[in-house]
Amino acid sequence: MIELLNITKIYKTVSVETKALKNVSFNVKDGEFIAIMGPSGSGKSTLMHILGCLDVPTSGKYLLDGRDVSQLFDDELAEVRKNKIGFVFQSFNLLPRATVIRNVVLPLVYSNVPKIEREKRAKEALFNAGLEESHFNHLSNQLSGGQMQRVAIARALVNNPFLILADEPTGNLDSKTGEIVLEAFQKLNFKQKRTVIIITHEFYVAEHARRIIHIRDGSIIKDEINHHQRIIKL
């Protein structure tokens, strides 16, 4: 369960003060598949940073799995990210010149999982993210975009997180490979009951989620159940 209460984020620079989020409140139940949608500059990334504990709000309360994480220090935030959050980025952010397995194993390095177990969990995550086993020992920069993003999804999964957060995960992909990636998210949600939040500015992408939160100028303008969820069957 995630609860956001009156989250406000203000960026202060020397000359200007930007209110990126204004009193944003909503709840996320375990196992939901949500898209946060809005035009550029509406505050999506800011919201994702707060949801993902990469940043803290200027004011407001954020309860993650029952714990208030809105006022934590850097290292406490890192601890929360390590245990509760899996990120998928628009630009994949894989370690180049490192194998697929090593990329997926990376979060486990910081959580002291024994070495023998790491590989097992990495393979399981890759399997759940839908990457063929023949690619497991390839270098990450030898993969196609769709494959790279599935490696990134596996990396987000490997810690068995409470929440998977994806920021424009199809933004660097053509529509066909984009669908492959969206299908991977849907499978994780349907089969494993994982909580997934996708951030996007494209309605086509948001359509694949069960719930869509519309955001504009830092405020939620609409929060609806998507009765026409587009299901991908490949």
Binding site: E79, R81, K82, N83, N93, S111, R155
Partner: peptide
């Protein structure tokens, strides 16, 4: 820099 950002996002602390 990006690698450092990624490591931090998966839970690396400053000390790590």
């Amino acid at each position: 820099t990006r690698e450092i950002g990624l490591r931090k996002s998966v839970g690396a602390k400053n000390k790590d």
